[in-house]
Amino acid sequence: MLNNAWWGEFTFDLQQQRCWRLGERAIILKRLDNEWNSWNLETDTDNNELMVVGNGDENYAIGEAKFGRYLQQSTSQNIRVLPLLADRAVVARPDTPLTLLAGEKSRLYVSTPIWFLAQLLPKGECLLDLPFWRPSDSWFGPSTREGQICYAKYTEARIQLNNIDKRPHRAITPITVINNHNKALTIERINVPVTLLHLYADEEHQLWTTGISVHRDGDSDNVELHLDKQAPVEALSPMLISGPRIAIEQSILIRSISSLFA
């Protein structure tokens, strides 16, 4: 399976294995009578390789992979594989700081990393939940006491969608910033709350999240964070792939500006 959707339901015969590979990055699953085996071959750097789903018979560098065993009384033949957004907020940074003038609005596009989720069917137990590439940790907040631990992803916050590389292991989040304040807003870093977002795939299997709108009004240090209820308009023929890691009922949240922008 090349340059196509790498997720869905997969059937494993006994002793059969499958491999999800991005260049030198690989995740391998194998079914036995009473256990599942996994091999997690990590790399230090991200890349733009196509996703290849195969049988993993080449077993390249398998001795360097992290090996896991997951026991069951009897294994079922079906597994569901899904892309999932990161388990923390992701901090993105434009190539250069952006200044949004008073009374203006702009739409930004941020690319964030995807996790590989494997669930055992029919019950849906989690077998694997791991990133294709784990970003470094980053503290985001106005001080060392106020803030949160996020993942750092200091590239690909763009104002033009065609400037973002579309990759099978990354999702695109559109962020609309509306600055109705009487002062300009300078954006050096953006805290993207991906744990609250739904994940979609378009007709070309590119992954998207629900969009976010940030409203800055008046003289307040707070902003309204609006979570869209559907796929962004840029995603053609979208299909819902997975829900948010953290489900919330409200779609409008009040945040301090320092918790979203720096």
Rank of each mutant, 00 (worst) to 15 (best):
Y109K: 00
E146S: 10
H181W: 10
T144L: 08
A102S: 08
E64N: 12
S111C: 01
E146Y: 10
Q16C: 02
V214C: 11
I28G: 00
Q148A: 15
P232R: 00
N179V: 03
G63C: 07
L117T: 00
K66W: 12
K183H: 13
P83G: 06
S259M: 13
L199A: 04
K183Q: 14
D228W: 13
S258Y: 10
A61P: 05
L84K: 11
H181K: 15
G68W: 12
K183G: 15
D57N: 00
A184G: 10
L108S: 01
S242W: 07
F116V: 03
I257C: 15
Y151K: 10
R25M: 08
I28P: 03
S213E: 12
N163T: 11
V192P: 01
N179W: 02
P142C: 06
N191I: 09
W133S: 14
E146I: 15
L120E: 01
N37K: 13
I159P: 01
N40P: 11
W133A: 14
G218F: 02
E224M: 15
A262K: 09
I28H: 03
G243R: 08
P83H: 09
N179Q: 07
T75Y: 01
E125T: 02
L32T: 07
R107W: 05
P94W: 00
I248L: 03
